[in-house]
Structures are given as structure tokens and as C-alpha cells.
Deep mutational scan, measured.
Amino acid sequence: MAAAAAAGAGPEMVRGQVFDVGPRYTNLSYIGEGAYGMVCSAYDNVNKVRVAIKKISPFEHQTYCQRTLREIKILLRFRHENIIGINDIIRAPTIEQMKDVYIVQDLMETDLYKLLKTQHLSNDHICYFLYQILRGLKYIHSANVLHRDLKPSNLLLNTTCDLKICDFGLARVADPDHDHTGFLTEYVATRWYRAPEIMLNSKGYTKSIDIWSVGCILAEMLSNRPIFPGKHYLDQLNHILGILGSPSQEDLNCIINLKARNYLLSLPHKNKVPWNRLFPNADSKALDLLDKMLTFNPHKRIEVEQALAHPYLEQYYDPSDEPIAEAPFKFDMELDDLPKEKLKELIFEETARFQPGYRS
């Protein structure tokens, strides 16, 4: 834990890192770190609560700039109880001085990944967590956004079992017609939660990839272990087919990539493993919904509104309290091709509203 900075004593240090967030945020305490930044909790002297502050230093890398800009653009436009918001952003007053960006968010005690390492969940908890994931996802999908990296560590939890989806750095506007060349190379989302079509096709992607990830998360809540822990690309596919069985001819016809289709045709026939054999203690309604989410063919996979209306979630289902976005989200430009200098300018502009004396 960093010592509390005395008023006016300059930035606090946390594990050798400068955290320049005073005077409003003090009493910093280390939480963890990701690929390009550290997260601390801090005391907000204005709202009198502890908050989470993520320090991001992305400006050396085009990919990190892209992810940072995506996350900020999306989260500043989203407003939903099951999606983490941005409360404040701290950065230098000029673009030349801006080396880091500090993002202030609600402090959540833990995440689903940490929880599943230590606790076996009751059916009631599984049901409530799944409902909140789908409630947040309904809003995301209504904005025409794909999260693309749903996994237990991106689901934040607090002691009252509130759940918030975080990390929109890989999110995209849904565009089933656009052929994202190089899709697989830039697709760094965790393999275990990846839909089979991501490994088999490169053309376009749809909201059904997020539903697949939610199915993987439900299976993990039922058993405290990942359902498809593939060691590499082909191993991942083999794990999936080992449980779902061989795809039907109709399902194979959806695979545009001939090499991928021929690979699947070359494999020995596998039978589907019954879900109640894998999860003998699970609620039968939970397994019915799991089956509809972990469907090989993305066109037959359940959609988020149908999933919310499934009998497993009937005690929570309330369409009048499951809000959607006001308007579909649009990125003005494809960020993939922009140089990091341009992305830095866009991050600077996007964060201006939090600067003292800002006038829109």
C-alpha cells in the first residue's frame, strides 16, 4: 500500500510507478496490472468513496492506442447498470505532455475469474450472474457493438453480487458484411471463450460470437473449470467437437473457408456428449439454455433477447427493466489503419471533457 500523499506533496508512487492523480484522489492501494497499465484503488475526496484507477501508458504502440481509444469512446457513450462506466479521466493539459491516461471507475471487490478459483456457486448465484451478463449484453448488442472478449476476468463483482462487464478494448461495431482481413492475426481474445466460426472463417462476425462466450462462462460457473481449455488453435476446435459432436452437413455448409471445411470433413465422426453427463448436478433449465448458447452453427445460436426470456431466468426476466441503447454506435473511421500519432490526438480530444474549465 502506498503511503497517503500529504496535501501538495506531488504524485504518489505505487510499486515504483508514478500515479499522478492528486489532489482529488489519494490513499492509493495496488490492485493489479494488465498488459499496459496498473490498477489501484484510491480515495475520492470529492465523492467520499474509494474508486478504481487504471493507469494506461499506450502511446508507444499502435495496438494499445487503438484499444484505449475504443474503450474510452464506447464506455463514455454507454450507460447501463451492468456495464462499468467511466467516472473521470485524468491526463496532462497538453498533448505533448500526455504520456499516461488515468481512467477512474467504480471500485468492484472482485471478478468472476477470482471468485470461481475459490468458491463453488449455488444455482441461485449462477442464475443471477447469468441474468446480469445477458442484461448488459442486450444493451451492448442493441448499440450494434460486439464485445468480443467476454470471459470471467472481464466480469466485475461486488459483495452485493452486482455484476458489471468491463474491458471493451477489443470491441467492434457489428459488421457481418465487412471482410476484416487479418482478423485472426489481430484477434487476441482469450482462445477458450472463442466461437468456432472465428477459427473457421475470417469473413465478418456477428453478435452470436458473444453468446458463445457467455455459454462458455455459464459452463464454467457450473463446474469451476473452463469447458474448452484448448492449448492452441486446432486443439481448441477438437475440444469443442469432442463435446458438441461432429457438425451436420448443414452446419458445414455455413463454413465459407474450404480449407477449414475440408479439415472438419477429414475428422472421424464424434457423438455429442449429453450435458447432464458433463454437469450431473446442474439445473435442467440451465443445461437447456447452455445447449442453445453453445450451438456450433452461429445462425442457430440463441440471441440475447431470447436467452433473457428463457425459463431458467424467469424469476428475473423483465423486458421493461432491460434497457437498450438510445442509438446504434458508430465509429467515424476504422481505427485499425491509423498511425499511433493520430490515435493519440483522438484520445486527447475524447478525454477533453474531463479537463478543468472544459467548454463543449
Rank of each mutant, 00 (worst) to 15 (best):
H239N: 15
T63E: 13
S57Q: 02
S246Y: 01
N262S: 00
R191G: 05
E12T: 08
I227E: 01
N45K: 15
D337N: 14
S284I: 08
L313P: 09
Q119T: 02
E345G: 00
E60A: 13
Y193F: 15
D100Q: 12
K164G: 09
A307I: 00
L244S: 10
D283F: 08
W192C: 14
K138C: 10
G215C: 05
A174N: 07
Y263L: 10
N281T: 14
I256W: 11
R91G: 12
K272D: 01
P328S: 11
L163M: 10
Q105C: 05
W192V: 07
R70Q: 04
T160Q: 07
A327C: 00
G22K: 08
A307Q: 01
I198D: 03
V39C: 13
P229G: 09
K48Q: 13
I74R: 12
A325V: 09
K138M: 07
G215E: 12
Q97I: 05
Y43M: 06
Q306T: 05
K55Y: 12
I84Q: 12
L222N: 11
K207E: 00
K55L: 13
M221Q: 05
G169D: 15
I90A: 09
Y36D: 15
F168D: 01
L146V: 06
R91Q: 05
E197S: 05
K117E: 00
N144W: 02
Y312S: 00
H299P: 07
H178F: 06
N262A: 08
L278T: 08
A307K: 00
K340Q: 02
L278Y: 09
S208C: 09
V104T: 03
L184W: 12
K340H: 09
Y64N: 15
M293H: 02
R15L: 07
G230C: 14
Q62C: 11
R24G: 13
H269F: 01
Y64I: 15
E349D: 14
V18R: 08
Y139V: 10
D332P: 05
F296H: 05
H141T: 06
P247E: 07
H232K: 02
N297T: 15
V39I: 10
H147L: 14
M221L: 15
F354V: 10
E345R: 06
Y128E: 01
F331P: 04
D88V: 12
S284W: 09
R301H: 01
I74Q: 10
Y25E: 02
Y316S: 00
P152S: 13
D88R: 01
E60V: 14
L244W: 06
S122F: 06
R359E: 13
Q306G: 02
E220P: 05
K330S: 06
Q132D: 01
I140L: 11
R225A: 10
D179G: 09
V104W: 07
Y358R: 11
F354T: 07
R77C: 04
Y102N: 14
L308E: 01
M13T: 14
I256C: 07
Y316T: 06
H80E: 03
A2Y: 07
H178W: 10
I198Y: 05
V104I: 12
S248I: 05
G204R: 14
E350H: 02
I89C: 12
P23V: 04
I227G: 01
I72T: 05
L170V: 00
W192L: 15
Q132Y: 01
N262R: 07
K114D: 09
K151T: 13
S223K: 09
F168S: 00
G32Y: 03
F279T: 01
V188I: 10
D100F: 11
R91C: 08
N262I: 15
S142H: 03
F296I: 14
G8S: 07
N238R: 05
T110R: 02
L150M: 14
T185K: 04
E81A: 07
Y36L: 15
Y233Q: 01
F348P: 04
L200V: 11
K300F: 09
E250C: 11
E322S: 01
D124M: 07
E33S: 01
P280L: 10
L130S: 11
R24P: 03
A219Y: 07
S360I: 11
D336C: 01
Y131S: 05
E60K: 15
H80C: 01
A195L: 08
R277K: 13
F228P: 00
F354W: 07
A7S: 13
A195K: 04
T190S: 15
Y43K: 11
L222P: 07
A35N: 15
L335W: 08
A189T: 13
H310M: 12
